[in-house]
């Protein structure tokens, strides 16, 4: 075996040592002991692979993902259809569905969002999630999904990717220079984050999620101002979405930004 062949094989050797006893790698490891250049190369590979693997495995899954999987799994699991109990349950379900279908025909309703029904959660949980993600973005620990200085580009990108976005943002917000946007998943709903440079150099962020995801969504019209965990925020509802403008700058800057806004 040449050193080239050995390096090709050793490149597939996992850095955590799980392949240490694999006979496929034994001869290549012997070759690495014989060839100092190959040994140095392999040690460098292992060091770099260990660092990359550790960083990849440090990425957290969304906080609500486990609960969503478990809830979905419970309703997806098959049951024996032939047991008496299930036979009657299915019969009852068919009867109920027939009744609901009749009711639906007489009382049609729409579900424009197309979202899977989930239990709404308090606005404070939505705010915490948005703030945590924004903090990661500002610290460089998370990345944008799309970037542009033009807000219209980001609005179009979010719309094309099925994430909530208001087509008409309050006047001063629409005129700010945007940095980028990110789609996150919260409570089973896609949510949109857009970051801007404010007129005084401060960072300003806009967060949007379906109103139906929140138990106590903000009112339509004039925004409510609040402060939470060092963030100043203005919250209102628009086009079926809960909107939240956030900054760490003084609240007066949020008020200035929204002062000329034409609220629906």
């Amino acid at each position: 075996m040449t050193s080239k062949d050995a390096s090709f094989l050793l490149g597939a050797c996992r850095p955590n040592g799980a392949d240490a006893n694999d006979p496929e790698f034994a001869e290549a490891l012997v070759q690495a002991e014989r060839d100092p250049a190959l040994k140095a190369w392999f040690e460098d590979q292992l060091s770099a692979d260990t660092a990359i693997a550790a960083r990849l495995k440090s990425l957290p899954a969304p906080a609500d993902l486990r609960a969503r999987i478990l809830t979905g799994g419970r309703v997806s699991r098959p049951r024996p259809w032939f047991s008496t109990q299930h036979f009657w349950a299915i019969s009852a379900a068919i009867t109920l569905m027939a009744g609901l279908a009749s009711w639906y025909v007489m009382h049609p309703a729409s579900n424009p969002s197309g979202e899977v029904a989930t239990t709404a959660l308090p606005a404070s949980e939505w705010q915490d999630m948005a703030m945590a993600t924004l903090s990661q973005l500002v610290a460089g620990k998370a990345t944008f999904d799309a970037q542009s200085p033009k807000i219209a580009d980001l609005q179009q990108w979010l719309h094309e990717n099925g994430s909530p976005v208001a087509s008409a943002l309050p006047g001063s917000v629409q005129q700010m220079q945007s940095l980028g946007c990110k789609i996150i998943s919260w409570n089973g709903h896609p949510a949109s984050l857009i970051c801007f440079h404010g007129p005084n150099g401060e960072l300003v962020h806009l967060a949007m999620v379906a109103r139906a995801a929140i138990t106590n969504p903000p009112p339509e019209g004039q925004p409510l101002y609040a402060e939470r965990n060092g963030w100043r925020m203005a919250c209102w509802s628009q086009d079926g979405m809960a909107m939240m403008l956030l900054t760490k700058a003084p609240e007066s800057q949020l008020r200035t930004l929204l002062a000329l806004a034409i609220m629906p």
Partner: peptide, 10 residues
């Protein structure tokens, strides 16, 4: 380099 950077590069 952090986890997000690794995923972004991937």
């Amino acid at each position: 380099i952090d986890g997000a950077a690794v995923v972004a590069a991937l």
